[in-house]
Write a protein that binds this DNA or RNA. Sequence first.
RNA 1: GGGGGCGUGGUGAAGUCUGGAGUUCACGCCGGCCUGUCAAGCCGGAGGUCGCGGGUUCAAAUCCCGUCGUCCCCGCCA
Length: 600
Amino acid sequence: MDEATLRTTRSAHLGTGEIGTEVRVAGWVATRRDHGGVIFIDLRDASGVVQVVINPEEHPQIAETAHALRDEYCISVLGTVRERPEGTVNPDLPTGEIEIGATEVTVLSPAAPLPFQIDDRSEVDEVRRLEYRYLDLRRPRMAANLRARSEALHAMRSGLAEQGFLEVETPTLVKSTPEGARDFLVPSRLRRGTFYALPQSPQLFKQLLMVGGVERYYQIARCYRDEDFRSDRQVEFTQLDIEGAFWGQDQVLASLEPVVASVVGALRGESVATPFPRMSYSEANGRFGTDKPDIRFGMELTDLSDVFAATGFKAFAGVLKTGGLVAGINAGSLELSRAGLDGLVERAQELGAKGLVWMVVEDDGALRSPVSKFLTETELEAVRDRLGAASGDTLLMVADEPATTRRILGVLRVDLGQPDGHEELAFLWVTDFPVFEVGADGRLVPAHHPFTAPADVEDMEKNPESAVSRAYDLVLNGTELGSGSERIHDPETQARVFRILGIEDEEAEFRFGWFMRGLQYGTPPHAGFAVGIDRLIAILQNEPNIREVIPFPKTQTGLDPLTASPGPVDDLQLEELGIELRLEVRSALDGEAEVEESAE
RNA sequence: GGGGGCGUGGUGAAGUCUGGAGUUCACGCCGGCCUGUCAAGCCGGAGGUCGCGGGUUCAAAUCCCGUCGUCCCCGCCA
């Protein structure tokens, strides 16, 4: 088979310039309009669509073939490019001024009746789309997203190559370091009883590349985290991973900004102002109640603690007495029913609030609220004033521990105020993250990861809970696109961080000894970042979830409907690995198989 | 681990609240007619155990219980 025997040009490359020339095109039957006599075929290939005309009077030998064509048949057509007759030009089609008068039609492959139509006009159940992903990829939406993804990767690679970055591949079978997310494990056959893990990120390898004298590294890296799915989370995802030696935060941000901007340019044809604005972690939390603020809209948090300093309203007074925070947002004109307002209260409770105070501003300025009767006129007036209340506005207040108050109002703010699409792009660097957070069990956990450099080592040991790090996030429209930091480059500081985290020297040696040894050999100060590519492209393509920009994604329960993966394996395979399934697991699998058999 | 939405011919939806014959709409599929359409048009036809299991009832797509799948959210995601 030679391409020249199947086609000599691409559909979308044809125009009035080719009129009179004989061409051969190949592709898929997008639509077929059979008039009994003349038959029109819209032939689609990767470049676009061109109209093929079959006239049985001129070429009776191909009429039968053409009549039998069905949607999505793969065909090759020989014919002559000609101007369309007057009045039949299609201005909606890039090739709409011309058509191909067919002299020969060859069916390369017929297509079975389709499970869904190859167009964007109807929403098809996503599992069905994934089961037939190869057909889904022919639809304009997915074809455009695949193309966009490719262009984004290309823009990243060329932008980083220009800056002298070296693309280095790190392994995807690595040592399990049970920190943070759950690892995917891969059993070793040659060393039975031991396991590789799939990498959660190339973090330690890229740091060792800095030790290895690779001064500027990047990789388009596949990463794996065995945690529950979300619309912006798959267990397997792709990040743009970079690291630079002799760098600090400013060099990292300055290197990434033009790369991200060129991706936006490639996908949207618009320019993004650089440098991106920056905001500290504490400012972001104070103003927006989150470390990933969507700054496309206001509705900022207002501290009302002083207003209620001497309040008789017990719910607020109690919280304030124990160092809590009373804050509010003005959600604007929501026009919610009582049930709608109750829904907000439920949402707040779902997020962990003890309660939510709502107030609706009446036409006369009065505040309609279940708690109005507990508040003085002075307090109500101050609330109106501080929140800039206008007639019809809904005001929401939360009283709790400061972090809880901010977090809940931050989520409600996004629920109620966030713009629907992503027409506008608001990039933001959030800087000066804390080194540690207090985990659920009361122990300190890294706010980013344990290799993040503290701003001040002495301060970190004295006040670990409030210590600031050299870590930063990139945020786009309220979505965290990625994070990075200046890294710890001396082994002693690294050991001190591990100790604060409760990882004793012996354990640190067992888990990270291989890495810490590397730090002993003249490690340059270094810093880096990782950008979530799936999220970035999804937002730029205005897609509601990252599955739309991943060629073969998984469902929320980790199933790939196309391959029915994950699936059971042979006993022989398990035996080679020295693995035996627990009885209840095995019988659950057998039960499933029986159910499937009896269904047939 | 928890909360919620959804599941109806091949596809998308309506019907479910308020039980009464598998009813309807659009697309697709099959056949016929049709020589300038471009989401072609016209005529005809086929196609569904209403996700699955159980219960209530004279009667269940509809009410109840359970279960499976899926999506969204909380937890989780160094």
